[in-house]
Design a protein around this nucleic acid. Structure first.
Lengths: 199, 199
DNA sequence: CCTCTTTCTGAACACACTGTTGTATAAAGT
DNA sequence: ACTTTATACAACAGTGTGTTCAGAAAGAGG
């Protein structure tokens, strides 16, 4: 790709990241971005339809990276135990990636909100639940449709990310992965320290 | 309150609800709203600063109703069992209210997204966790900070609502309350039909 | 019913940002 | 060196915003 294109898009991206530290996406104009990026306003429109499409493309890029990592770890586990052990490093890896992209991640969650990002993650979960759940698990009768569980898993996943961002990303990816597993396996009350139905 | 004010605000609200069936909030203009509402554009600004403040106020109203219902059911339960039984009707009641307000609810979740709505719900959960958890539960060591659990509970709650809307609100409030409890107590995997650590 | 007050209307205004276009220039690719 | 392509500059019409003001309409209160 033309070096000028690479440079321009990089400057647009940096301009947005910089502006987002000052104000919300909604009130940022194309003019703001191009001023900050030191490019002509018309040039912006050579690359993106509008500021919303720009953000969508950033989201798409990030999600593709995440998905790529997630798919690397896909494997057939024939027992629950193997399943748990093979998933943990995948989650850790994903959180490492998110840590590298924290500015963009924060912006995407704040602006595009839960749903667009969550929808993508949900679909990935649906795929994984359909194709990558150990045989022993899928012998169980599902109490709820798989779409609901995927929705729920993605909401949980994003909640952990949200918590991470709100607490200034102090936790390590390993700690986060642990949190995800705890809640996924034990449920909120279980993670709270209360085992279900034991008293 | 002046009948004209009541009438105007009602027409603005209906206009928005009507327009949202055709296009997203972002592309709806004040002009669109006032045309549909058959009022002067200037009149809109006598009531709201802009379209965003308008939506915030709608959200505020809905949330206050929800909170009011939730608080009605607050009581001191000294056992886990009493706690579970006293909470269930509260959740059912909340879902009934949400069913009545389904158009607005759908718009708020689609537009304002997860976060603003979730933040309010989260804070309510924090309050309830702090003040309304049976004594026996709070004897347990908390594995995670209460803010995280409140965040998570609110995400779960909204996920159920999301699922409800996506499936055209076919489920009854009672079924939804059951789902919430299932996941809250058993966790996603447990609700999936897999008991944790049993194999 | 009458009066006073509030709200709404209609029209106009400056303003900001948008998205596009045409020409010129600079920088890349080959 | 030559061709292609990206960007700059500047101008344009268009759309929506938020505000203002005089006048009309409707409600509130006696």
């Amino acid at each position: 790709m033309d070096r000028r294109v690479v440079k321009t898009r990089k400057e647009i991206r940096n301009a947005l990241l910089s502006l987002m530290e000052e104000k919300d996406f909604e009130v940022i104009t194309v003019l703001d971005i191009t001023k900050r990026a030191n490019i002509n306003r018309g040039t912006f429109y050579l690359h993106y339809v509008d500021k919303y499409e720009m953000l969508e493309k950033y989201e798409q890029e990030l999600f593709e990276k995440l998905e790529h990592v997630a798919m690397e770890y896909l494997q057939d586990d024939d027992t629950m135990d193997k399943f748990l052990h093979s998933r943990y490093p995948a989650i850790v890896h994903v959180f490492h990636l998110l840590q590298e992209e924290q500015e963009l991640l924060t912006i995407l969650l704040k602006t595009r909100g839960f749903f667009s990002f969550q929808d993508r993650i949900k679909n990935t979960f649906i795929y994984m639940f359909r194709n990558n759940i150990p045989f022993k698990v899928s012998e169980h009768p599902f109490l709820y449709p798989i779409e609901f569980l995927a929705l729920f898993a993605s909401a949980m996943f994003i909640s952990v990310i949200q918590y991470w961002i709100q607490s200034d990303m102090k936790q390590t990816p390993e700690q986060l992965a642990q949190m995800v597993w705890d809640i996924f396996l034990k449920g909120p009350m279980g993670a709270f320290g209360v085992l279900p139905f034991t008293e």
